[in-house]
Design a protein around this nucleic acid. Structure first.
Lengths: 339, 339
DNA sequence: CTGCCACAGTAAAACGTTTATCTGATGGCG
DNA sequence: CGCCATCAGATAAACGTTTTACTGTGGCAG
């Protein structure tokens, strides 16, 4: 039951293996009659080209690696899904790996990914620090970094969202509605994009002489909900919460539900990311919408260009993440009363 | 700028390539001193083993393919994520492919996956029909089919949920609360697991002389919400809705929110699957909880056993999907009034 | 001292492709 | 009619690794 190789097809079709190869790739003329026969035989035998052998010979292969922190986080899942679609449309296959927000595992997955000698790599690093392996590959392999970029002058293309503006806009909205007690629900405050969002919020608050509080909820919903509840119990609850990721949005909401705090009557909420569940509620969430499709599109274009040999200066794409105003932010009670 | 190969390492370390290979694999004794030197040189040079070459030579490779309909559907994303973790723990790499619920694309992705000559495959078919390629591979490749199994006597291991019981339990719950007008929100009624769930519901209803209605919402949330809204407008709204997937749960909820129907005051809802967003609400959802971790675990164990050469009869694992009673189902108004 | 075995390491073949180079055959054209 | 170009197809080398079979070199028992 040995696997069927090109040799078997050649024998069965009564031609040489070179002819079979050419018949499939079409890079040398083969008579239509022979092509037909080869294809028929291949189908009958259930022949499948061995990609490993093919790529070993050619050196190149239409495969790109994609490394993200997690597939359970809808943001990354959507990103991967979009990238996969774009890649497939261009005839590329995608190798997905997840780091689980763990630097060690990230390094291991990266090694595994690179072992396939892909023609490019799109990665969302799990910390601000770029893994050594990755840094070394930057010299030779087309790479696009997305979302979590901790440094400024990287020698590769990067695609990020304007986190500062997003934070600023979210805070502005809350402030305009009259909120003065604002709590920032961060995942990990040290992460560059999160830090940027926080900076945007803080700056907006500064002009209104408001000092937001910050609570770190981590990257797990359950854990985050517990921490949020603890924070609420300890410090009393603010009039508005601005969540920094979809996971913290969920964590905050879970805590509110557990404690019985109503949104938006008792606390206003600005969420992050924009998913179906956010609008599938009596009070749809106002949230900062990250343009996932655009992010994927940009990242893919950059990578394509690099793979095609572009020697342009590394691009640093910054996309807008506009606020979607819906119904989860309203004036706080004090203001309502005064009005 | 040619890639670094084992040859470069061998030259630099002053040994033969065979020795380098053995130093890494450890399958032949190499003096500790040489091992150390080889490892050091490899690190210094940034050597990465070419998996393609390796697998070409050995024929086998610790890689398994995973094929799911979509990564945007949290059910599948979680499944893939769990499988990845299990595989990694056993030293396997996972190749992920998505079919997008499209039979043609499924076939293409399957071909691509098999081109890597993985040592096993875990697949969630996108229709009841098993693709030809897959059927043919069943004879030789370790395969585990999950979730969407359209046929009975497959020659491979399968892992499914007891969909009939799940449907029955959900319906029972609604009936006990006094509901008589029940609407089933199906994705695609023809899909085997969905059909089973519907059958479970219908049978439970039968004993209460209730005839549930059915609406098909598809696999996309937006589209589904529109169809649900249309159904509500056309036929009036039932007292209880039982959703058949997490996507239809979301679609139903979206429609309710748009039309302004309150859950559970105006309509009760039994959801499907169990995700964070379902409990992050004022009224947490009662839902059928699919044991994703167990599904992944079972599928992986089966595959491991097959890869290890087990010749057992094909197993047909059926897992329980118990109902999580929370707050989205309560007595319908008529009954409340009568009480 | 001789034969034998264990040990450390090497040479070379093989995996399934692709592709550069080669071979005949056919036909066009001067 | 001879020559060259064109074409379909074949041969064989190469890709980077693993692994089998081999070569020396010591050590040790007889």
């Amino acid at each position: 039951m040995a696997a069927i190789t090109i040799r078997d097809v050649a024998a069965e079709a009564g031609v040489s293996i070179a002819t079979v190869s050419n018949a499939f790739s079409g890079r040398k003329a083969v008579s239509p009659e022979v092509v037909r026969r080869v294809e028929e035989v291949a189908r009958a035998l259930g022949y499948q080209k061995n990609i490993a052998a093919s790529q070993l010979r050619t050196g190149r292969v239409k495969v790109v690696g994609v490394l993200v922190p997690s597939l359970v986080d809808t943001f990354f899942a959507s990103l991967v899904s979009d990238l996969e679609e774009l890649a497939e449309a261009d005839g590329y296959q995608v190798l997905v790996a997840t780091s689980g927000d763990n630097a060690e595992r990230e390094a291991a997955q990266l090694d595994a990914l690179l072992g396939w000698k892909p023609s490019g790599l799109i990665a969302v690093p799990c910390t601000n620090a770029i893994p050594d392996t990755l840094r070394r590959e930057m010299a030779t392999l087309p790479i696009v970094l997305v979302d979590r970029i901790g440094e400024e002058d990287l020698p590769v293309d990067t695609v990020v969202v304007d986190n500062h503006a997003a934070g600023h806009e979210a805070a502005q909205h809350a402030l305009e509605m009259g909120h003065r007690e604002i709590l920032i629900a961060a995942s990990v405050a040290g992460l560059r994009p999160i830090a940027e969002r926080i900076r945007g919020i803080t700056e907006a608050c500064l002009s209104a002489t408001v000092t937001p509080r910050i609570v770190e909820l981590g990257t797990d919903v359950e854990e985050g909900a517990a921490r949020m509840a603890a924070c609420l119990a300890r410090d009393g609850h603010p009039t508005a919460v601005i969540a920094m990721t979809n996971v913290t949005t969920l964590a905050a909401l879970t805590a509110f539900a557990q404690v019985g705090i109503d949104v938006p009557a008792e606390v206003s909420l600005v969420g992050f990311d924009d998913y179906a569940w956010m609008t599938a509620r009596r009070v749809p969430l106002s949230a900062v919408r990250q343009p996932i499709a655009d992010i994927a599109q940009s990242a893919w274009s950059c990578l394509r260009a690099r793979i095609a040999g572009s020697g342009d200066q590394p691009a640093r794409l910054v996309l807008d993440a506009p606020l979607q105003c819906r119904s989860s932010v309203c004036a706080p009670r004090a203001v309502q009363g005064a009005a």
